[in-house]
Design a protein around this nucleic acid. Structure first.
Length: 290
DNA sequence: AAGTGCGACAACCGCGCGGAA
DNA sequence: CTTCCGCGCGGTTGTCGCACT
């Protein structure tokens, strides 16, 4: 891509460690060393490979660029959707998101998010007027602090739908329910009923189904999670129209059904079902299709 | 053709964590 | 227990290429 920086001022080839872009020669050195010796102490790698770089820099270069298992090139739509979904669950935990996207690095995903998806969401949220939640906060991007609020009016492909639960601002613990029609791309879905217990309010996110407000991981106490009726019941014919809509997802192990059956999706050699096992670690995602 | 703005992406920086001394 | 060191992570910056004027 970019030419290596050959500026003498920036090229500290005396005693100081080099910074800036990596030259092909440096890449070769690091690659050869890693292939022959494998990963060890990074400061040793830098020294033994004859690189005037700090170990940190070598690590970064290896992980983000030289690693042989890296998948270069544009993100596929599936990857894109997965990133969005995982981000709604995990927030800005890029390394965790990257761990679920084989061949992709956290840096790559982070850049992709910040440059492409963020912009797209912003555009979509500014152009849409369908959501009753059109305040600034509703169009904020998910983050650890915001608790992964995602989706501002159907910004995604038809696999993503937003459900904005209206008038659920009270803090009582009684069950609220709401019926509404929602727009999934060009497809209207009627008679979606959502029962929300406890603190499950706002926007709901369901991959392939709807979007929900996902509380920040840190903010969920086990007490809350394990409370009775702490689930969201979706009764609709969603699954008929959208076979990938989750079915029978609950705290125990029904998550395995999330992608089960003929609807199982795969990206490359990677199994979506395998991925979704991890979602069971989010007990507040407690959906059940009646 | 030259200048400018913007997007994409590589790399750096700072912080926190965990293990060893 | 404290300090040091290496590592990993997320945020941010720097730079290049390209499109547009």
């Amino acid at each position: 891509m970019r030419k290596p920086d050959a500026t003498p001022g920036k090229n500290n080839n005396n005693n100081k460690l080099r910074k800036g872009l990596w030259s092909p020669e440096e890449d070769d050195k690091l690659m050869n060393y890693m292939m022959n010796n494998g990963q060890g102490c990074w400061s040793d790698v830098a020294r033994n490979a004859g690189l005037q770089r700090c170990g940190k820099s070598c690590r970064l270069r290896w992980i983000n660029y030289l690693r042989p298992d890296l998948k270069r090139g544009a993100f596929s739509p599936q990857e894109e959707e997965l990133i969005i979904h995982l981000h709604s669950l995990l927030g800005n935990r890029w390394s965790q998101i990257a761990a679920r996207l084989p061949g992709r690095t956290d840096n790559e995903i982070k850049n992709f998010w910040n440059s492409t998806i963020k912009k797209r969401i912003k555009n979509m949220s500014s152009s849409t007027t369908t959501s009753p939640n059109t305040s600034d906060s509703s169009s904020e991007l998910p983050s650890k602090d915001s608790g992964g609020l995602v989706g501002a009016g159907g910004f995604m492909s038809p696999m993503f739908m937003d459900v904005v639960v209206p008038s659920l601002t009270s803090t009582n613990s009684s069950t609220s329910s709401s019926s509404m029609a929602l727009n999934a791309g060009n497809h209207m879905i009627d008679s979606l009923q959502i029962h929300i217990d406890h603190h499950h309010q706002g926007l709901m996110n369901m991959y392939g189904g709807a979007n929900a407000y996902v509380p920040p991981l840190e903010s969920i106490s086990m007490e809350e999670n394990n409370g009775p009726n702490n689930n969201i019941v979706i009764s609709s014919n969603l699954t008929n129209k959208y076979p990938f809509v989750n079915r029978g997802v609950n705290n125990t192990n029904n998550l395995g059904n999330f992608w089960q059956g003929e609807d199982q999706l795969k990206v490359g050699e990677w199994d979506f079902e395998e991925l979704m096992k991890d979602v069971s670690s989010f007990p507040f995602l407690d959906f059940q299709v009646e």
